[in-house]
Write a protein that binds this DNA or RNA. Structure first.
Lengths: 211, 211, 211, 211
DNA sequence: AATGAATGAGCGTTCATTCAT
DNA sequence: GATGAATGAACGCTCATTCAT
């Protein structure tokens, strides 16, 4: 269905979210992300995380003052990591439409690929953060969002779509974030084709074929 | 921004989800939907719901055997109610594009309007249902989804869009369900304009104006 | 296994404990006895009893002021009924050994026969009665026990056994009451043979066979 | 190190059921046995046990997953302990009649002596165990019962009594288990005399008299 | 007499967090 | 740093009892 606008990077994936390394702290973070996604923040106990990591529950508190701090760390790490990833992906392209495709593809990869668990947590467990923490994380998200808004504004100015870029971003966010409920990277639909399909929702069929 | 394809119903809203009437049971259901949305299922205590309704916590269990049954009832009521609403909205139109717009508008109304709380619960607290309950509710949801798929297939056959109707439905679901995070019915953007904008994402600019 | 000392009554059984008739009160009592035996007093809810009787749980309290009063009534009824039964059975015999056998047989019949449930309650749920109620019921039980002690004393005076009659009564009580855990009236062992066997434990083999 | 110059007297018996030591777990078990006996399993709350032990109610669950597991542990410990006690007591005698007396004495001691509370629980709270747990405990009890059946069969073969050994065991069980309702070790009746009296119920007066 | 919704104290259990070792 | 027993507040839920109808 529709050919890819350009070759997907496919190449070497950034191997891991920065803070989720092999340190005890990193292993707690990875386990927590996985469990928070699978069972939700509230249904994941500190003992669950400890068991997964192979330590005692009390030991968790040498690394994080509270359970909420673990959630916050997951959220912050994944935002930072994906902001960087998007910035890098955009930098490889010149044409706004290709920048847009890089953003879409990067966001989908974040949502269904390596940072899948943490991204899911970002959406579904957001309200488990205290208001203060939500504000702090929101500030980080704004950097990420600005990458999108800049690109969309640019496309809009060039007349590649007519609707409001801010609203457009929200529609795109809906489309991409919902993929976590149905898209599987090794299914029939290639991730690049999905990205193209979403790009077409923004700029229409003109996006296709050429180039 | 873009004129409405047709007059929005604006008219009399169906006042209430069937089971959420003024009976004790109905008041429990309404309070629960609100609280589940606000704090999540796990963070809403039975005592919270009881306090909101003005009864004792033990009395809840005259109406629902378990807390999960309250969630299930909310989910079932809102699916049934919105399935009926969509069916009625579709019935008022002949042209597939107009049927599509009715679906989009109806779904957005469900998500940001009167059944807002319960719809949010449907998305965010789904996993708090036991697998059995999920299956049962899924069967009801399929009726709802079939209304969409029939309409989208029809548009596809008429050549009004080229991409796969199943995938298209998923993109639409993402766009509409995400509105609960940002859209406010009495803000600057009219709900009808938002519906039009989403319809354009499916059938392109051809949907506009003329008619 | 040893022949019966005399013909077992086999005949018409007194049909029912006095108070456990077909009145609402009587049906509550029967149901309660059965349930108290099956699940224990504490694990039997007033709703269980009501369901069994076919009324609402609130209605129980028109017949008994508290749940404990139901237990007390069961206990009192069964003591009264079996005291009368034992008195009647004894009256049919002259010889002390035959009186003893009548007592043993009557007690076993009470424990494994028609009043089985209530007798079990008497033993196993005794402590669920308040101290006051225990005292009152104990006073009734003493009438019953006196029948035994009179007979055993008589046998003792005649030299049919040498040990203390009071202690002997306690050993008999143990033997008979324990039958509720293992004896089934329609199994291989006839109830009359079991009674004979217990009588032999008191008066030795001399009890047997020969007139 | 040099070996001990004299054999351990063996005199000083560990005065306590194996698992009921001074550990937190052991103290929970002892307190539970006492309370289960006094008030019954259902009327004993976890908070009662905790108060008795001097810990918080939540702390109980570090030692036992559920309240029922406490009951099961009491049951298992007391069965194991008394099986061992009976085995040891039997081993000291050669003659079957003396083995029988050792069994009777051992069982009474279990019922009215140091393991009194737990033995009472065994009888009266048995039904509070789940069916699975009942089966498991029953398997342990069978080892205990086999000691009795072996001895009784031996006596029966030697013609020391005529009735069925299996039924005889049941009558004995009744006599001994009922002692918990009336016998006090420091009353007028010596425990050894009581044992003799029960033995006479099995083998008649022939058991008596000599040395 | 009977109903059945409501009460409210109390239950077994959970779990983030603490802290002596 | 790590442990794991202990805490204690809070949870979902039960149930004998009450009472307006």
């Amino acid at each position: 269905m529709g050919k890819s606008m350009s070759q997907d990077s496919g190449a070497v994936q950034a191997p891991m979210v920065n803070g989720m390394d092999d340190s005890p702290r990193g292993r707690v973070l990875s386990a927590a992300a996985r469990l928070f996604r699978e069972k939700g923040f509230d249904r994941t106990t500190v003992r669950d995380i400890a068991r997964e990591v192979g330590i005692q529950s009390g030991s968790i508190f040498h690394h994080f003052p509270t359970k909420e701090d673990i959630l916050y760390a997951v959220v912050v790490e994944v935002i930072r990591f994906n902001t960087e990833r998007l910035r890098a992906a955009m930098a490889e392209h010149e044409a706004p439409v290709e920048k847009l495709r890089a953003l879409v593809l990067g966001e989908i990869e974040a949502i269904v690929g390596d940072t899948r668990e943490a991204m899911s947590v970002l959406v579904y467990e957001w309200r488990c953060l205290s208001p203060d923490r939500q504000s702090e994380a929101l500030a980080l998200r704004e950097v990420y969002e600005q990458l999108w808004l800049d690109t969309l504004s640019s496309l809009h100015e060039q007349g590649l779509f007519r609707d409001d870029p801010f609203i457009m971003r929200r529609l795109i966010t809906g489309m991409t974030s919902w993929t976590n409920t149905w898209f599987h990277p090794d299914g029939n639909l290639a991730i690049g084709d999905l990205a193209d399909m979403i790009v077409r929702r923004v700029v229409g069929e003109q996006a296709d074929g050429n180039g």
